[in-house]
């Protein structure tokens, strides 16, 4: 699994992605880790199939005792079906995830890890000296769903928003925005259900100062690509399946 340091100051952001050992038919996912002092949080730790790659990759950078928090943006299996395994490996950790999904996410196994539900309005989490904000992104695509914003690093973890369906070996960064739109279009039209929710999300994130936007699938957005994405997304009609 590829690992890259995305931000390195008093705290760090890492991306783990493009796992070559993952079975072909499961969707490729990007996992992120924020490390601050002796604490860290794994953002959308991923599915059970990539658990062993994730564990090994994380331990390249920090000891297991420092994996103190997990965050799951929503309940999907590609986000958090590995929970039952983390539950055994880091039994003292805390899981932050939408409160609404508690009864569902617990199906993946959560006997030791402390379940910390995030209320619909959002909230925040302090990792070491770093404060991360939970930005509501409900119905994007999941009915209870959060992004994570780091105002110091100016990074927005956007979960499934900004996702692209791409071959396994594609680059981590967008090279050409226009051609990248072709890889994002179907995903957003079909998985995102509501234009009203889309506008609500855009209104929230347009107020944020963002240098990098990190989706859970596909490529990382930098600089002006973020504004380009917002404009592209605003113009896109979503919820396409009702026409079929």
């Amino acid at each position: 699994m590829e690992a890259k340091l995305l931000f390195d100051d008093k705290h760090q952001w890492y991306v783990f992605a493009r796992d070559p050992t993952k079975p072909d038919k499961i969707i490729d996912t990007n996992q992120y880790m924020v490390v601050s002092g002796n604490e860290s949080v794994i953002l959308d730790p991923g599915g059970i199939e990539i658990f062993s790659s994730m564990l090994s990759t994380i331990l390249k950078f920090i000891p297991i005792e420092q994996v103190t928090h997990l965050f799951a943006s929503h309940q999907d299996p590609d986000i958090i079906s590995s929970l039952g395994m983390w539950d055994q490996v880091i039994p003292n950790a805390k899981l932050y995830t939408p409160n609404l999904w508690e009864g569902f996410i617990r199906h993946f196994g959560c006997e030791n890890i402390e379940f910390c539900g995030i209320e619909d309005g959002g909230g925040q989490l302090t990792i070491g000296d770093t404060v991360l904000q939970f930005i509501p992104a409900h119905y994007m695509h999941s009915s209870a769903n959060f992004n994570v914003y780091d105002p110091v690093a100016k990074i927005l973890f956007s979960g499934d928003i900004g996702a692209a369906l791409e071959p396994q070996d594609s680059s981590l960064y967008i090279e050409d925005f226009d051609s990248h739109c072709d890889k994002m279009r179907f995903f957003h039209q079909r998985w995102m259900p509501s234009n009203a929710a889309k506008m609500n999300w855009l209104n929230r994130v347009r107020k944020l100062d963002i240098d990098m936007m990190l989706p859970q699938h596909g490529r990382i957005f930098r600089g002006k690509e973020i504004e380009q994405f917002f404009d592209w997304f605003e113009a896109l009609e979503v919820g396409s399946a009702i026409n079929s």
């Binding site: 090994s56 994380i58 331990l59 390249k60 297991i64």
Partner: peptide, 18 residues
């Protein structure tokens, strides 16, 4: 198996640094 998985990952981490 839980300890084994963690141990092997820890070894991989040390050898990556080495």
């Amino acid at each position: 198996p839980v300890k084994s998985a963690v141990t092997a990952s820890q070894v991989a981490g040390e050898l990556y640094r080495a």
